[in-house]
């Protein structure tokens, strides 16, 4: 299986990473190499095997519903690339 120009356009859009036209061939070549590597998995029959998401077989711990975080927003807003009047600012979003 190999990555097409269409695939790369879709991936760029989903991952929100711009890929310049001049770089596309090289990006595809390297991704194809990686896909070839991971395709070694396809030889294995995994029909009856439970997928493993976590290394340890434990369940989710629960937190008590008490407030532990308090406002530190001046410091946080200052770290924002663009902030104004308590908001983080981005270019106008159209719904």
């Amino acid at each position: 299986m190999s990555i097409t120009q269409k695939d790369i356009a879709k991936l760029s859009k989903l991952a929100k990473i711009n890929i310049n036209d001049k770089d596309k061939e090289l990006v595809i070549k390297k991704l194809d190499g990686i896909l070839e590597l991971i395709n070694a998995m396809q030889m294995v029959d995994t029909k009856s095997i439970e997928p493993m998401s976590h290394a340890l077989d434990i369940s989710q711990p629960l937190r008590e519903d008490t407030q532990t975080e308090f406002s530190n927003k001046d410091r946080y807003l200052e770290l924002g690339p663009d902030s104004n009047e308590d908001y983080f600012i981005v270019p106008r979003v159209i719904e």
Binding site: V27, L31, L35, Q42, T46
Partner: peptide, 23 residues
């Protein structure tokens, strides 16, 4: 990021991500 996006995307999830979790 692109590889990760690819293996999770519709149509490839089972063949890549789920398969990997099983192995």
């Amino acid at each position: 990021i692109l590889v990760g996006t690819y293996v999770l995307s519709a149509g490839y999830y089972d063949a890549y991500y789920l398969k990997a979790q099983k192995i």
